[in-house]
Amino acid sequence: MKIARFLSYFSGLAISLAAGWTVLPQALYKEVPQPASFSHAAHTGEKGGMQCTDCHAFRTDGSFAGVPKLETCAGCHAEPVGETASEKRFVEEFVKKEREPQWQIYSRQPDNAWFPHSVHVTRGKLACEGCHGSHGKSAALPAYRVNRITGYSQTVMAGMRMDDCVACHRQRGLSHSCLDCHK
């Protein structure tokens, strides 16, 4: 009798927790598809041999250009260079039609955050992986799930929350008052 009561209590608790853990995030986030599939792993490392900055380049004035435009892609992929269907489709859909793909940016920061890449990368000599994690080695783009209320990505790469910024600044003895990073 007592065991049955305990069991019913804990199973109820477990069901509620499980539901809260899975249903709520499902309700809070919606998935937005990326315009095309992309493998960082195919481009970098031993296979591709490219560096991050080959595509995510700094402009001539020293500022950071972010996600590459179609022309950067078209530089190599004017015609399919490999055998994969996804590459073929990318060339057909975007390169040939000169249609700019609307990539969803996982690392997009809020409007009031000020993050200059040149200060951190050029001057501060930070490695890309420090904030973006192993994104450069991923074989496929992770699902882009956007928070319905805030409009920001659920998968923020390692080390890109405010706490991470502050922790790093503190660790290096750098100034970390509000206005240092907020505009």
Binding site: P110, N112, S175, S177, C178, L179, D180, H182
Partner: peptide, 18 residues
């Protein structure tokens, strides 16, 4: 703590989001 003084500029910072 929505207001602080920035030690690097001496400017009093007001963060509306906080």
């Amino acid at each position: 703590n929505a207001v602080d003084v920035d030690p690097s500029t001496g400017v009093v910072g007001q963060i509306p989001e906080r």
